[in-house]
Write a protein that binds this DNA or RNA. Structure first.
Length: 891
RNA sequence: GCCGACUUAGCUCAGUGGUAGAGCACUCGCUUCACACGCGAUAGGUCAGAAGUUCAAAUCUUCUAGUCGGCACCA
């Protein structure tokens, strides 16, 4: 069989995914071993409005590596996919569409029709990511695909809501909340981000008082229209006499009291604070303490309402700010305006400045849930974060300071809150409308118009996706797959999602959602900043797939250190595209000469193995063992590096080259062995590079019978269901590794001589090697290989070097090497070469001897360290002596 | 304000107490019959700075500088 000269990823990517899916390879049911352990991961559900970005590609790669790896080990493996309904995002898209296509608003078409349009939008565009995941090679069980608004998942949402309500852990109340005037909905604290504005202003306003003024400072003058008090510090001597008095509130004709409150810092500003309980969280608290009126002066779109006064009704809040200042100025009540750096709360999604506003909303009381989360972390250490630092601490600190969670949203798309009101305003919380009606004794009911925060349903994802709809539910999937083994996600949603899923899963199912939590870093744009549409520094994973292949992109993403941020750089993917091509061509070489040979694992157990065979088997097993250690610790980058160097350096650069002559000569045993090593290597690479390895594995003769995994007895042969190489410490061969390095070192020295002496590769010369009897045997056994790789005419082995003066010489740990170069040698160059070698070795020896001369080191350092240095120092001594003699013989 | 991370070869990054590493780029040489997406050989770093702990520090501690992140507050 002959392969194309270069690997073409597109062709391989087309065929295999469909076949895997069609054959049920992604389903846990493919595993027929009744006693198999399970392994499960739920995907962080991507937003239905989204399309695949580099962060997904990274996370999906890591999840797929883990899942494929465990599946090949014979675990009953589930990776559960799905999407999130993304309340605000979808709503915004549909509102926009409605406006553009029909010039209508949601109110024009009504709630029911609007929701229908949202579903339609979801059906039409919601599968973008799903399709892109197929391209990624993600081995998810599509038959278990879930959407947060599926019937069962919605039932789960209602059950959880009702239970929490009945326990008193969900309540409805009037609080100061974060309000987005653009989206016209409340936001949780986590959905509010901060923006620092350097050009902010601090306005000093005079409030008239008995012929004089009290000056207050504010950054939001328009809120003064809603002031219901002025507060001063109780210990502030300047104002003590004013406490309890009334003061005129300009522009409003109202009089408001002066109160004393500990919150006020006498040192800051004027020491007097205007109090607007309906528009500021701190003022709200002051208001509570002094029983102040809560006067709401704004509408839900950020315009002023009637309570603000006739001149302001309908005016935008920022316009009103200017107007207030203007009017104060005209009245001579504007003391001054100072420049002031402020940080403004903005809506995470639309960057609109958030307005703190008094509003009636639903909240989850977090005390009980927080305790559950903290206990899991403190007693059981879950989730175990990778990397542990700094996430564990940040997570714990956040939990410790957890505030109540605003869960209602003024949207139509989402899970409508299962609460109904009668005409008197009594509330009935129930799983269904019928149930609510029953509770209400037949009274006329209206359902609460708000929906729940999308993260509320995402918080149930670990168990709602496995069939849980109500407390007490038990399903096979819950039983088998919960707790899930690991969650792989980005640090931006540790609080929004990871923590909530942890707490809610434990509370409602009594199990941990997942044991481990891998937090990936951020893939940054070329400019070192997070990729974003506005910065235009994004890199589309699909374009990378097209340009370099899915496998190259995947293994590159896996090569990034866990949790580390990385700047995007095409050159790095190119490394792995080249790697894919290397694997392709190594296979091409093996197949070119396979001639009826086939994979045979027994061929590696033979007593007849040559040094190179024993060495590559030893390296292979060492690599497999180290690979397991790395993946167990989620050190994907270590795993990639092991595979890369094993395949390229050990297998291609040395093993293939050492065996090339035998294989080209049609040596059946050699061919069988190299095919076998290659086949094992492909299986180790498969989780990282699924398409390439499947493509090649299918072409190797004898793979399916040799690598059969009993857990998948009736499945069609595929590398993804073959056995994963585990490595066996018994196969490690220290002697072979030591002897092989002696051979490699000798070859490298000869190559170095050739290169430094500027001798063309086409010129062959004799190579003399001197060593002790044991090592001479090793060189003798590998004479043909040394001859080939050093491009030598003859190899002359002896216990002592006996060569003409016109020779280039070198030393290795185990041997002396000489290359007679009559007519080719440049004595000056050779002298320089030897002098440099001596200098280098001497430098090292001096450092070692310095250490060995230090009595403290010799007595305090572990004996084996000291011994190792002594040995090395001795070696260096021998080598230096030899090189010096060589140098002298030249003059 | 509090907490944290990062600073290693020209570039992008590994490396958590014992002789500084990789890929790419650079230099030199190769149409060596798997691969130029390749092969061979070099060169390149007082591991941000300072102090400390230790026989031994890129690695542990403290401080400084710079970059970035999270949280809180902000009249």
């Amino acid at each position: 069989m002959e392969l194309a000269k270069a690997y073409d990823p597109k062709q391989a990517e087309q065929d295999h995914y469909d076949r895997w899916e069609r054959n049920g390879c992604f389903r846990p049911e493919i595993n027929e071993d009744r006693d198999a352990e399970t392994y499960s991961i739920v995907i962080p559900p991507p937003n239905v409005t989204g399309s695949l970005h580099m962060g997904h590609a990274l996370q999906h790669t890591l999840m797929d590596v883990l899942v494929r790896w465990k599946r090949m080990h014979g675990y009953r493996t589930l990776w559960l996919p799905g999407t999130d309904h993304a309340g605000i995002s979808v709503q915004r898209k549909v509102v926009e569409q409605l406006k553009n296509d029909e010039g209508k608003t949601p109110l024009d078409i009504g709630r029911e029709e609007f929701i229908r349009r949202c579903w339609k939008w979801k059906e039409e565009y919601g599968d973008t990511i799903t399709e892109q995941m197929r391209r990624e090679g993600a081995s998810v069980d599509w038959s278990r695909h879930r959407f947060t608004m599926d019937d069962d998942l919605s039932k789960a949402v209602r059950s959880v809501f009702v239970t929490l309500y009945e326990e008193g852990n969900i309540y409805r109340g009037l609080r100061i909340v974060n309000w987005c005037p653009r989206d016209k909905t409340v936001l949780s604290d986590l959905e509010v981000k901060e923006e620092t504005k350097k050009d902010g202003k601090l306005y000093y306003l005079r409030y008239p008082l008995a012929g004089s003024f009290l000056v207050v400072a504010t950054t939001r003058p328009e809120t003064m229209l809603g002031d219901t008090a002025v507060a001063v510090s109780p210990s502030d001597e300047r104002y003590k006499h004013l406490v309890g008095k009334m003061i005129d509130l300009p522009l409003t004709g109202r009089q408001i009291p002066i109160v004393a409150d500990e919150y006020v810092d006498a040192e800051f500003g004027t020491g007097a604070v205007k109090v607007t309980p309906a528009h500021d969280p701190n003022d709200y608290q002051i208001g509570q303490r002094h029983d102040l009126e809560q006067l709401l002066v704004m509408n839900d779109d950020g315009t002023m309402n009637a309570a603000a006064g006739a001149e302001f009704v309908g005016m935008d809040r920022f316009k009103a700010r200017e107007k207030v200042i203007e009017m104060f100025d005209e009245l001579g009540l504007l003391e001054k305006i100072e420049d002031y750096e402020i940080t403004l709360p903005v809506c995470e999604r639309c960057k609109t400045i958030v307005e703190p506003i008094l509003s009636e909303q639903w909240f989850v009381k977090m005390d009980d849930l927080r305790d559950i989360g903290l206990e899991l972390m403190k007693k059981e250490g879950v989730p175990h974060f990778s990397p542990q630092i700094p996430h564990e601490k940040v997570y714990t600190t956040w939990l410790e300071n957890l505030k109540d969670w605003t869960i209602s949203r003024q949207l139509w798309w989402g899970h409508q809150i299962p609460a109904w009101y009668d005409a008197e305003g009594n509330v009935y919380v129930a799983r269904t409308e019928e149930e609510a009606r029953e509770k209400a004794g037949g009274r006329e009911l209206t359902q609460d118009g708000d929906v729940l925060d999308t993260w509320f349903s995402s918080g149930l994802w670990a168990f709602s996706t496995l069939g849980w709809t109500a407390p007490g539910d038990a399903t096979d999937d819950l039983d088998e797959f919960l707790p899930t083994d690991v969650l792989v996600t980005g640090r931006d949603i540790i609080f929004l999602w990871v923590s909530r899923m942890m707490m809610l899963t434990k509370k409602f199912v009594g199990k941990t959602a997942f044991e481990d939590c891998v937090i990936t870093g951020t893939v940054l744009g070329k400019d070192g900043k997070p990729m974003s549409k506005s910065r235009k520094n994004g890199v589309d994973p699909i374009e990378m797939f097209d340009k370099f292949g899915v496998d190259a992109t995947r293994i590159y993403l896996a090569s990034i250190a866990t949790g580390a941020d990385i700047k995007w750089n095409d050159l790095l993917i190119e490394t792995y595209r080249n790697f894919a091509n290397k694997i392709w061509n190594a296979t091409r070489f093996c197949l070119l000469n396979s001639d009826g040979a086939s994979v045979d694992h027994a061929s590696l157990m033979s007593n007849e193995l040559q040094l190179a065979d024993r060495w590559i088997v030893s390296r292979l097993d060492r690599t497999a063992l180290d690979l397991k250690k790395a993946l167990d610790k989620y050190e994907f980058h270590t795993a990639v590096s092991l595979l890369y160097h094993f395949f390229w350096d050990d297998f291609c650069d040395w093993y293939i080259e050492l065996k090339k002559d035998e294989i080209n000569a049609g040596d059946a045993e050699a061919t069988t062995r190299i095919l076998t090593i290659l086949e094992i290597a492909l299986r180790m690479l498969h989780p990282f590079m699924p398409y390439l390895t499947e493509e090649l594995w299918q072409k190797l003769p004898g793979t399916s019978s040799e690598s059969h995994n009993p857990a998948y007895c009736n499945a069609e042969p595929t590398i993804m269901l073959a056995d994963f190489p585990t490595g066996d410490p018994i196969m490690m061969d220290e002697t072979a590794e030591k002897e092989m390095s002696a051979v490699i070192e000798a070859i490298k020295k000869v190559r170095n001589i050739r290169s430094e002496m500027n001798i063309s590769p086409s010129i062959r010369f004799d190579v003399h090697i001197a060593a002790d009897a044991g090592m001479l045997e090793v060189f003798r056994a590998n004479e043909a290989q040394i001859k080939k790789l050093a491009r030598a005419e003859n190899i002359i082995l002896a216990s002592e070097l006996s060569v003409p003066k016109a020779s280039a010489k070198a030393v290795t740990t185990d041997a002396g090497i000489a290359v007679p170069l009559e007519g080719l040698i440049d004595f000056d160059k050779e002298r320089t070469r030897l002098t440099n070698s001596i200098a280098k070795l001497s430098e090292e020896k001096e450092r070692l001897d310095g250490q060995l001369a230090n009595e403290n080191f010799v007595t305090r350092a572990p004996a084996e360290k000291v011994e190792a240095l002594r040995e090395r120092s001795g070696e260096l001594d021998d080598q230096i002596t030899t090189l010096r003699a060589n140098l002298e013989s030249l003059s």
